[in-house]
């Protein structure tokens, strides 16, 4: 077993444990912090995969923006179910069975696929994945259209989010 495999196994188990804590812990602020741990584990997985840009974006966008947004939302909506009462609905066992069945089904499906045991070709020496990715994102022969559509979607979503969360009663609408 090589060092890379050991690192991957440790990161994977830590990430899965953090994921389990996200879905089972009672305190939602703790759940959001466990989500930060899980996202960081995924970022380390990207580093192992040589996807350096994705790792940095994972830390900046997911941990820096999305997880903090979650913590804000938890704190803004935290009056009524402050950790008391059941955090799971009464059909939680059904969800657990369905999750286990999904994992089993995916595992079974992957076992029957011949590409499963594939090992990576060695990473090309001097290959600059980040500049390649930048070229792919802005070249018309590449993926400039999906990129622009994603940015328009992001603008529309943020405008919509501000509109939805805006409170007309005590908002400072210039009235």
């Amino acid at each position: 077993m090589t060092g890379e495999q050991i690192v991957f196994l440790v990161v994977a188990f830590v990430t899965l444990f953090a994921g389990l804590m996200v879905v089972t812990t009672r305190n939602l602020v703790h759940a959001a912090l466990w989500l930060v741990a899980a996202l960081f584990g995924v970022a380390v997985t990207y580093v192992i995969l040589h996807a350096n840009f994705l790792a940095v974006v994972q830390v900046v966008v997911y941990i820096g923006a999305i997880a903090i947004l979650f913590i804000f939302a938890v704190m803004l909506t935290r009056r009524d179910m402050r950790d008391q009462g059941p955090q799971m609905n009464k059909n939680w066992w059904f969800g657990a069975v369905l999750a286990v069945l999904t994992f089993g089904g995916l595992y079974f499906l992957l076992q029957g696929w011949e590409g499963m045991t594939k090992t990576a070709t060695s990473y090309p020496v001097g290959f600059d994945a980040i500049s390649e990715l930048g070229n792919a994102l802005v070249s018309p022969a590449g993926y400039v259209l999906p990129f622009e559509v994603a940015s328009v979607l992001l603008v529309a979503a943020l405008v919509g989010a501000v509109y939805v969360a805006f409170n007309p009663r005590n908002g400072n609408s210039g009235k």
């Binding site: 899965l16 059904f94 995916l106």
Partner: peptide, 15 residues
Amino acid sequence: AALFSIGMFGVLSRR
């Protein structure tokens, strides 16, 4: 797949 299943359990069972 395991992470996906854990997330799905959370979606289905949290209140």
